[in-house]
Structures are given as structure tokens and as C-alpha cells.
Computed example of a mutant assay.
Amino acid sequence: MRIFETLAGAAKFAGSRWQVALAQGREDEKRLWRYVGESRNFVQVTGQIYRFEDYLNELAPGAPSRTSPALNAGKGEFSRPAVEMLLEVIDEVPEPEQKQHVRVLIALLDFIADTGQLDEFEDFFIHPHHYAPIAVARFTHRDEAEEWLKGTAEPPSPANILIGDDYYQFWYMREDNTRGMYREYVIEAAIAALTAEGIPPGAPSFPSRTEAEEWLKRHPADPETFVVIGGEHYLAVHHKRLKLHTLHHVATALSEWEEHKKKVALL
């Protein structure tokens, strides 16, 4: 659990600096601190917490902060200004704990660059509304997902996966090698919000799912759009990382969301 505490502390530090920039009206600095903080979110939702922990452990404790050659060579709009800001901050903050928080934040950006994910992260930051809740894999049936979860030495964690069109969350704890999965109702909640005032008219209509999927290949959702299949409304969701769409029957999703809320209320 230590890596989660380490990342939480670094994120809290970034958030406090963002608040200072906000209070003082420093818009450019505020956006850079949001970018830095979002790096932790990106690593987490893509299931790379332990992969980052290994990367962090390879760095000498307390060593002078470096920046990745890949980061320095990157063409991202925010990555280099963000690291330059962090390198200034690490010299300014007086407390060793604060300096360590900054080292972790620099290491996050280095990790993203060294693993070839800088362009994806910048797009994730600049265009968050283009991304559906991220899933790292898709399986046809639950037993396939369970076999993969059992058979993978260190599965991505915590991370969403898809079984058919349904979201599940994987979790894995390195400390005791426990792992599991549970149903996640993130899309059902989104459909409830999107349909609260009714479904917008004019959704494209198809007689079959196959025809809808073929159309979506040529007209990818950004990240979601309503379609009609066989007279029933569906929400088509585009998963950029997996290069596929899922289709969610609106009426079923709304019913499942209401049932889920009732179960949660009883806990």
C-alpha cells in the first residue's frame, strides 16, 4: 500500500500548489499544476501503479532530480514547462518531505515519457471529454477475464476492463498477492445523466447491431453517441485505447442503475 500513500502525498502537494496559483491569479502556473496532478490520475486509471513503483524504486533515494531524455525530446505542449517548474520548486521548498513529493511528481512525468506514453497523456489532459472511462482490456466472457486475472503475474491494478459491453474493475495487491474483480456501473450512471432530460432526437437508426458497428467504424463516437438498433435506443461508447465501441441498451442500463443504487443504499 506504500505506493498509494506516496502518490496520494504527491498529489496533495500538487493540489496545494494549484490552489496557491489559483488564489494569486497565475493562470499558466495553475494549468501546469493541474497537468502535473493529472499525471498521477493517468497512471492510476491505466493500471500502472505497480509498474510506476518499480520505476520509482530504481531511482536512488534523495538523488538529484533528473529529467528523462524522452521527456526533454518530447514535443508536448505542457511536459517540458511542467518539469521546468518542478525543478524550480524543488530548490525552493524547505522541507525534505516536500522535496520528496516533487521528486515523485518529476518521476511520474519521466515514467510516462520513458514508456512512450507522453503523446497519449497530453491528449488525455487536453481533451478529457474525448475519453470514455478507460478500460485496459476487453473479454468476451467472464471466465476468460477470470482466467487472465488468475494467470497474470501482476495484472494492471486498479483498472477497468470490459466483459462484453459491461465494465468491471480489476484489483490486485502486490503485498499479499490477492486479486479480484467486481461489476462497475460507471456507464449506467452516465446514461442516467445523459437521458435525464430525454434522449436527443435524430439518432442514426440500424436494423441490426452488426450494421451499427460497421457504421461506427467509419463514424467513431467522441466518446459517446446515441444510436437506434431494431427500434431500441443504445449508447455507443468509443474506447480510444482499445480501438472499439461498446453498445449499451439504454432501458436496461437505466434499470440496472436503479437496482444498483438500491443495493448501495442498503449497505
Score class of each variant (00 low, 15 high):
residue 108 L to R: 09
residue 116 G to T: 08
residue 118 L to W: 01
residue 122 E to C: 01
residue 124 F to N: 04
residue 124 F to E: 05
residue 125 F to G: 01
residue 125 F to P: 00
residue 133 P to K: 06
residue 133 P to Y: 05
residue 137 A to I: 07
residue 140 T to M: 07
residue 142 R to M: 13
residue 143 D to H: 15
residue 144 E to I: 09
residue 146 E to W: 07
residue 146 E to L: 14
residue 148 W to M: 11
residue 152 T to S: 06
residue 153 A to D: 14
residue 153 A to V: 12
residue 154 E to Q: 13
residue 155 P to Y: 06
residue 155 P to N: 08
residue 155 P to E: 07
residue 156 P to T: 13
residue 157 S to C: 11
residue 161 I to Y: 09
residue 162 L to P: 10
residue 162 L to Y: 06
residue 165 D to N: 15
residue 167 Y to C: 03
residue 167 Y to W: 13
residue 169 Q to D: 05
residue 170 F to Y: 13
residue 171 W to L: 05
residue 173 M to S: 10
residue 174 R to P: 01
residue 174 R to S: 02
residue 178 T to K: 12
residue 180 G to Y: 03
residue 180 G to I: 09
residue 181 M to P: 06
residue 183 R to F: 05
residue 187 I to C: 01
residue 190 A to W: 09
residue 190 A to H: 11
residue 192 A to E: 14
residue 194 L to S: 07
residue 200 P to W: 10
residue 200 P to Y: 02
residue 202 G to V: 12
residue 202 G to L: 07
residue 204 P to I: 10
residue 208 S to V: 01
residue 210 T to N: 13
residue 210 T to Y: 12
residue 211 E to A: 06
residue 216 L to D: 08
residue 223 P to D: 05
residue 224 E to M: 12
residue 236 A to R: 05
residue 238 H to P: 02
residue 238 H to D: 01
residue 241 R to I: 06
residue 244 L to F: 03
residue 244 L to Q: 04
